[in-house]
Simulated assay, not measured.
Amino acid sequence: MNSSHQASHVTLVITHGVQAEKQQAYEQWLEQIMPQAAQFPGHLGVNVLRPVHGENTYTVLIRFDSLDNLFHWTQSEARKTLVSELPQLLSGPEHIDVRPGAAFWFTPVAKAAARPAQWKQYLLTLGVIFPSTLLIPLLWSTLLPASRGTLWGHFLNDATVVALVVWLWMPLLTRLLKNWLIPRK
């Protein structure tokens, strides 16, 4: 595959329904597999969205810099060995999806599932971007006054905002606000 046509990163979205009495064992399994993934080239991070409101569904988001590097991880013997332990912990089959870039923020796991209304996506994204773009430049100009008005300072601000949005704010807020984004029927 020609890497020039790939997204800036890819996200492996894994959804596991874990047996209620096996959640502690599943957490221990996560503690084993996450460091394994981090050892592979191109690994950009992992987010684990844990169950809330008495549910049993875990969503694991694993980011790699390219589809090729993700493929090397998914086909590795280390991962295959750890994944072989999963069936005894899960209440059903796992769901796996590969999504380019940050497309997972508002994309439901199930193909037939409802998506949040666009106005809600807009408000949540604006609610994250607006304060970030106000506060991060203040932070960096205080810590590094020489960065004010420079190209590298602008880059530092943008890189920090994007990193916070992609790896912290959106995964956290979409999980916390999931009942607002897509109300239960």
Rank of each mutant, 00 (worst) to 15 (best):
G153F: 01
L177M: 12
R184V: 01
Q118W: 13
I182K: 09
P51I: 10
R79E: 13
G149M: 07
I129N: 04
K178E: 14
T57Q: 15
S141R: 08
L173N: 03
A113P: 08
A38V: 05
H154F: 05
V109G: 13
L90W: 00
M1C: 15
P131G: 05
A163Q: 11
F71N: 15
S147Q: 06
R148A: 08
S3F: 01
W73I: 02
A37S: 14
R184N: 09
S141P: 00
W73Y: 05
E85L: 05
V83A: 15
L156W: 11
V98T: 09
L139M: 12
A113F: 03
A7H: 14
A25Y: 02
G149L: 11
F40E: 00
W140I: 14
G54F: 09
P51D: 07
L86C: 04
W29C: 03
S132C: 11
G42V: 08
T15K: 11
W180R: 04
Q19K: 15
A163N: 13
A163P: 01
P145Y: 00
R175D: 10
V165R: 00
V48S: 07
H16T: 01
E21S: 08
E94L: 10
Q24L: 12
Y58D: 01
A159T: 15
P100V: 02
T150D: 09
H72C: 06
V98F: 12
E55T: 15
W152M: 08
H43A: 08
T133Q: 06
V162I: 15
T107D: 08
L177G: 03
K178C: 06
I96Q: 06
F71H: 11
W167P: 00
V18M: 13
W29I: 11
W140Y: 12
A113L: 04
V128L: 11
T107R: 10
Q39M: 09
L139R: 00
A25T: 10
V13M: 15
P108V: 07
P93I: 02
G45K: 07
I182L: 09
L49K: 11
A159S: 08
R50C: 06
M1I: 07
N47Q: 14
T11V: 13
N157W: 02
A146V: 05
Q6K: 12
L49T: 04
Q23T: 14
L49G: 03
E55Q: 13
V166P: 01
A159P: 07
S4I: 08
V60S: 09
W152N: 01
I33D: 10
